[in-house]
């Protein structure tokens, strides 16, 4: 299958990661072949962050990761960075950089490529709605504003693939909704966006597809209503979930713990 122009297809074949002699991820096989927001869910320690890091080339992995049929490992670090943008869980910015300076760092992989970097930076500032305070130091922003700026930094790469590790953790409900909405719109505009998310309701509402990891392996993969079922949540999250109806959608609400 030939991917559409500008769209990336990623195929994972038996991907595994061993950290300090301990297998953290094993036999992960999945095809990410359509644009959309893919939610990576699972209990703590399931291997979600490790899978994202393996896709971004930040940790050595076994098996094969193919991007448009080509092994990702064969790309140079700069080429890979142009194809796969990564939004780390870490939100620290070590120097008092301005918002625009932070976002501009997303253009680093394109240096010397003859692209219009300013236009890409402006697009990212506009898309995340942070242009109004582009000249302020990032240290003066609230947590929600900072999260949007860091997302803008990742969007400025303008890579066909965006990997985001818990982008809504520690955000208030308003900013959680805004951030998930942004990621979904970005995916609907043609990017492959993979996001680690803990909030099951956000996962159900915003993601087109969910991949549930547990103990380093994929245990469920499909549309949200097929993955977020009562038995699945009981087995893998050890919670009993209830499903209140909101509009036409039944949303999973983790209600009580099961077992110790």
């Amino acid at each position: 299958m030939i991917p559409a122009a500008g769209f990336a297809r990623i195929d994972l074949e038996n991907v595994g990661v061993v950290l300090d002699g301990r297998p953290v991820l094993a036999n992960v096989t999945a095809s990410l072949g359509a644009p959309g927001l893919v939610g990576l869910i699972g209990p703590n320690g399931a291997g979600k962050t490790t899978l994202l890091r393996a896709l971004a080339g930040l940790v050595a992995s076994q098996g094969r990761v193919l991007m448009n049929g080509q092994p990702l490992a064969r790309l140079s670090p700069a080429e890979r960075a142009r194809q796969v943008a990564y939004l780390a869980q870490e939100r620290a910015v070590h120097w008092p950089l301005s918002v625009r300076e932070v976002v501009a760092l997303g253009r680093l992989p394109h240096r010397g490529q003859g692209h219009d970097d300013q236009a890409a930076i402006d697009r990212a500032l506009d898309e995340t709605g942070v242009r109004a305070f582009a000249d302020r130091p990032i240290g003066h922003l609230s947590g929600g504003e900072r999260a949007r700026v860091l997302l803008a930094r990742a969007l400025a790469v303008e890579a066909p693939v965006l990997l985001a590790d818990e982008p809504v953790a520690a955000l208030d409900p308003h900013h959680q909704l805004a951030m998930m909405g942004l990621l979904r719109r970005h995916a609907e505009a043609g990017a492959l966006v993979m996001v680690v998310v803990h909030d099951l309701i956000s996962a159900a509402r915003f993601c087109h597809r969910l991949i549930l990891l547990d103990r380093g392996g994929v245990v469920a993969d499909g549309p949200p209503d097929a993955v977020l079922t009562e038995p699945t949540l009981a087995t893998h999250y050890r919670v009993r979930a209830v499903f209140p109806q909101v509009g036409t959608q039944a949303l999973p609400l983790a209600w009580e713990t099961l077992g110790p």
Partner: peptide
Amino acid sequence: GGGLDALALGDETARSLGVA
């Protein structure tokens, strides 16, 4: 300079930006 700038966002992000 470019690599040092990227390090302002932490080691992981710098590496994801292609910094060796």
